[in-house]
């Protein structure tokens, strides 16, 4: 995390552009500029700024937005809802697509089902989330009245409107992720199908469905779960772009806006939170991993 903090801090400042000048306009009075820089603490040497920021971070203070003066955490909390909803539903959609089609195409290898599903997965991997979003708006959003193409309805205004407002962006985010996972599921299941224990299971007289789902599935999921955590970045990256397409005020929009305005504390805070979520998700994945793979046990044992 410290590494992330450091990289974000310096990368943000390496980008050309001066927040004070952006706020006051191109032909601002030099004295006013200096005064504003003084106020924002931008006139101090970089390392001083860095350590000040770090010290405040340790006490849980993410600072205030340069532009609005609001606390960074507060503005993040305001827009977190849509982002979390879209990302979560997107992952659910991805898994619901990836696991069954991955299994299907491994079982029907080199048959029509396999070609169809790998082709769809290939599209998913090749198309960026925001483009899928645009296509979805054009094809479904415009033709189906009950599904809005724009904006977000919070969940406390009803589950159904909430769900309808995020289904398209979630699909746009989930599809590329699902494509990646499906291909992993397929190759991992193909490997499992050749394992000796699958032959043993058939030699026990189990039906082919039982062999596949009782003996195969869990083994095939092990590598998929690992990579699902790593490729979570695809979802998070997708959400940022998709929010713009669907005009949803989420963390992604906030981030893009703050980068455009060189709102250093807000950029830093947002990136930090996103990377924190990423790390957290990977911890969850690791815990899940120990559940499905009995060969891995953390914390000793006998």
């Amino acid at each position: 995390m410290l590494f992330v903090v450091t990289v974000v801090f310096f990368a943000v400042r390496a980008v050309p552009g001066d927040p004070a000048r952006l706020m006051l306009g191109g032909d601002a009075d030099p004295a006013a500029l200096t005064a504003l820089r003084q106020e924002l603490g931008l006139n101090q040497p970089l390392y001083v700024q860095y350590f000040q920021w770090l010290r405040r971070l340790l006490t849980g203070n993410f600072g205030e937005s340069i532009r609005t003066g609001e606390p960074v955490l507060g503005s993040l909390a305001q827009v977190a809802g849509p982002t979390i909803s879209i990302a979560a539903l997107g992952m659910v959609i991805a898994l619901m697509i990836a696991v069954p089609t991955g299994i299907l195409s491994s079982v029907k290898r080199y048959e029509i089902e396999d070609y169809v599903s790998t082709t769809i997965a290939f599209f998913g991997i090749s198309m960026p989330a925001f483009w899928i979003g645009i296509v979805l708006i054009l094809v479904i959003g415009v033709n189906v009245d009950s599904i809005p193409t724009f904006g977000y309805t919070p969940i406390d205004e009803g589950v159904s409107p909430w769900f309808r407002s995020i289904i398209l962006p979630a699909f746009a985010v989930g599809f590329p992720y699902g494509g990646i996972l499906m291909r992993m599921m397929r190759s991992s299941m193909l490997e499992v199908l050749n394992e000796d224990y699958m032959r043993t299971a058939r030699a026990k007289g189990l039906s082919s469905n039982l062999v596949l789902f009782k003996h195969g599935l869990q083994n095939a999921l092990i590598p998929v779960v690992t990579l699902a955590g790593i490729f979570l970045a695809v979802v998070l990256g997708g959400v940022v772009a998709v929010e713009i397409v669907f005009g949803i005020r989420g963390i992604g929009r906030l981030l893009i806006g703050s980068i455009n305005r060189r709102d250093f504390p807000l950029i830093q805070g947002t990136v930090l939170i996103i990377s924190f979520v990423f790390v957290l998700a990977n911890i969850v994945v690791d815990l899940l991993y120990t559940m499905i793979n009995p060969r891995i046990k953390y914390g000793g044992g006998e």
């Binding site: 030699a203 189990l206 003996h215 083994n219």
Partner: peptide, 22 residues
């Protein structure tokens, strides 16, 4: 399927890989 495992059963070569690890 009733024959396999019930009437004729098999012992495979490598016990490292012929048992399901999970």
């Amino acid at each position: 399927r009733n024959v396999r495992g019930g009437e004729i059963s098999m012992i495979f070569q490598d016990p490292m890989t012929s048992l399901n690890p999970v």
